[in-house]
Write a protein that binds this DNA or RNA. Structure first.
Lengths: 351, 351
DNA sequence: CTGAAAGCGCTAACAT
DNA sequence: ATGTTAGCGCTTTCAG
């Protein structure tokens, strides 16, 4: 039998507040204080503590701090997990503001999958985050999500959730924007204007559709159901391609097409081009979003600018405010930002 | 003076393991066991515990568990914070594998900014994550990063870091891929082939440049420095636009242009088109990456496919393996994946 | 201004 | 099979 193992003198494990205290010749409480409220310790003490920290390379353990403080300095951002380049500017802005404020950003992709939603519901319930930003376009259906009282502030980005309250909501004026775009197309002389709608169940898509119809009505153009192309399952290329087939099969083609998203417009443009139809020569096309490629595509896309970065920034600031309030339910906000018409090359005046 | 405050009976705070234990009529240890090793408690006990858990809506507190287990079930993914749609498939794959394994994904954008790197170095040192994936293209320069012994496994994605060891590395065969692309262009009859290089300091960009030159040499085409367009500060549109100016100003224009990234190619294509030069009619253009838009652009881009999702998936699996090993330094791996030539419309045979 | 001590919620020895 | 106990590393009263 080997003799009982001798505990190694310096385990060289992570250095704790104890190590620092010992080295600085003070108590752990003093180290903690020197860190949290530097002006409540003597200059000399502070010096000694900081020196010890420097020498040992001490970094406070997050788990211990979280356990004590009941706060994690982390937020969870839930994304749909598809078509993510659209969400990139939002995520970027969120990360910027949060990390600036010392918060970590945990991301989760729900992919509309129940088990994944349950997974993230658990993360929230486990107190792993201090706040949640939902950019999924829908509230997770998991019971743990909806039935359980929210212990942390929650915000909805880019979509509202009628019937639920207690969330801050940040979205854009979808209807007004779609109206503006359609008005613009009408102003260009178009009368036969088709609309490629977004996913049927998506509230934003429906708002845009409403704006389109509103503009038509205001201009005295009778609504033609054959010109409302629904059936999209997503704001993606494929939906634009499907619409292109309808366009090409039309006996009397529209002179302008307004897509509910840039990607839909790109899918449409590419598909019609294969058939020798080019925009804006043969048909005017407009998008919605003003993604990175709208400017760089050929033709450059006329579209509605959605202030994605601003939504990220403002929602992050609101979240910080609410999280800092501690347990008190701070008032939520409802921010609805306007979009801006961006005129480029894909739509032209009808001769 | 008011009398000593009476502790409210049910604070209705988060339910702890104590609450569950009390309700189930067992000790906290038993609750813990029923959760961790269900087969080591009686059926009856297990039932009682689970019932109590259900009734109370108990979820174990993450901080307490982390503190005890010295593990957080979280990984940090560090991204550059620019041109993020390129990284989207990687992030997607990472999140998929990690969340499947019960790990959370914390993201951080370094933006090549020192203070942000320090910030994230601290997150790592604080034991906030069990592993780190660097997709930044460079090792953070922060001393805390480089000098301090890594306490958790680290992996490098899409770029290697010569001189450092102890990391798993996942990247692609940049040189061979660039060589293949250039060979392809040569095979199409091109002799005057320009290369729009990526950022000078970027190792991947340099590998691609080397592959380009290698192909030229192998084909007996003398290297023309005037056809190597450097100066890019990023793999972005702007770099392509700058190259377009050089192209348009050339007295003798190349017949083919190989860009070090798809976005560079798009920027180039768009800029030359403004001058009435269209690909592939007037000049053949090839990219590198095979991003989402390569297929949807006009013209569809001939490019090299980088297996981004696979890099994400495999690096995540490797990271899981290494994290599960506990403190023992598991062997790191070096995975270098091949790229695939994707022939589309932007490059054509020279008449 | 500083130290002692309690305890956040959980798990893992060690007993029984 | 279950309970008791001792912390994990930190912050925060409460004394001094």
């Amino acid at each position: 039998m080997a003799e009982a193992p001798v505990k190694p003198p310096a385990v060289r494990g992570p250095v704790t507040i104890q190590d620092v205290a010992r080295r600085a010749g003070v108590s752990t409480a003093t180290v903690s204080r020197a860190l949290a409220m530097p002006d409540r310790v003597t200059d000399a003490t502070r010096e000694a503590v900081f020196a010890a920290i420097r020498e040992t390379g001490y970094t406070p353990n997050a788990a211990a701090r979280n356990l004590r403080a009941k706060t994690t300095k982390m937020v969870l951002v839930l994304l749909p997990g598809i078509g993510n380049s659209f969400f990139t500017p939002i995520l970027n802005a969120l990360e910027e503001v949060f990390s600036e404020a010392g918060y970590g950003v945990l991301i989760g992709y729900t992919r509309q999958d129940r088990s994944r939603e349950t997974h993230y519901a658990r993360v929230i319930r486990a107190g792993q985050v201090d706040g949640v930003l939902l950019v999924t376009g829908h509230l997770p259906r998991d019971e743990e999500f909806t039935h359980f009282p929210y212990t942390v502030p929650v915000s909805l980005l880019l979509s509202e959730m009628p019937g639920y309250s207690g969330f801050s909501v940040f979205d854009v004026e979808n209807r007004a924007a779609a109206r503006t775009m359609t008005d613009y197309l009408i102003g260009l002389g178009h009368r036969r204007i088709a609309h490629i709608a977004g996913p049927t169940l998506n509230p934003e898509a429906n708002e845009r559709m409403a704006g389109y119809r509103e503009a038509l009505a205001a201009a005295g153009i009778p609504f033609d159901p054959g010109l409302l192309w629904t059936g999209a399952t997503n704001f993606d290329f494929a939906s634009g391609e499907a619409a292109a087939r309808r366009f090409l099969d039309s006996t009397e083609r529209p002179t302008a097409v307004f897509a509910a998203a840039d990607e839909i417009a790109f899918g449409f443009l590419r598909a019609i081009r294969s058939a020798g139809v080019v925009a804006p020569r043969d048909v005017s096309v407009a998008g919605f979003d003003d993604t990175e490629y709208a400017f760089h595509y050929d033709p450059a896309l006329t579209t509605m600018h959605q202030p994605r970065a601003e939504i990220g920034r403002r929602s992050a600031e609101d979240m910080l405010r609410r999280m800092r309030a501690g347990g008190d339910p701070e008032p939520t906000v409802r921010v609805r930002l306007p979009c801006a018409l961006v005129i480029r090359e894909s739509a032209r005046r009808l001769d």
